[in-house]
């Protein structure tokens, strides 16, 4: 039976630290290797940063909802915002080179793709964007 953990928080940068702590606690509870735990935490923070800045346009009255699903062999995290979404199919085909120093921003999705086993986007009607991150687990 998978376990679900749901967290909802206002679009303020200060709450991203809470997400890091939650991810760390869950990873420790699941006995994950530090490297795997870091990859999950980094990716979830990137997804939440995108939801905060791009989806919710940093409006504190708009919440970000995060649903963590714990399975014995997999962890998946859904991050919801209230934005209009973006053309992710187009974006995924032309992800900018992350080492291009002319670009100050735009590395978040690349990082998530590299660090997680699967990433998907869905525009949810009457809601906003949903990003789903999945990581297959290797126990330490």
């Amino acid at each position: 039976m998978p376990e679900y953990i749901t967290i909802e928080f206002p679009s303020r940068h200060k709450y991203l630290n809470m997400i890091d702590i939650v991810c760390g606690e869950i990873a420790e509870d699941m006995g994950l290797k530090l490297e795997i735990a870091n990859e999950i935490a980094i990716s979830v923070i990137e997804a939440c940063t995108n939801a905060l800045e791009h989806g919710n346009k940093s409006s504190p009255e708009k919440n970000i909802r995060m649903v963590i699903k714990r399975d014995p062999d997999k962890i998946s995290i859904e991050v919801y915002d209230w934005g209009k979404g973006f053309d992710y199919k187009e974006y995924l085909q032309h992800i900018p080179d992350p080492s291009d120093i002319q670009k100050v921003r735009g590395r978040g999705i690349f990082i998530m793709k590299e660090m997680m086993d699967d990433i998907s986007f869905e525009l949810v009607k009457d809601r906003g964007m949903k990003v789903t991150l999945e990581k297959n687990l290797i126990k330490s």
């Binding site: 630290n17 120093i101 590395r107 978040g108």
Partner: peptide, 17 residues
């Protein structure tokens, strides 16, 4: 630093350039 995200890396890149 306890952590940094891609936006934080952008800050360092901006300082570097």
């Amino acid at each position: 630093l306890s952590w940094i995200n891609s936006a934080g890396m952008g800050i360092l890149i901006s300082g570097y350039t």
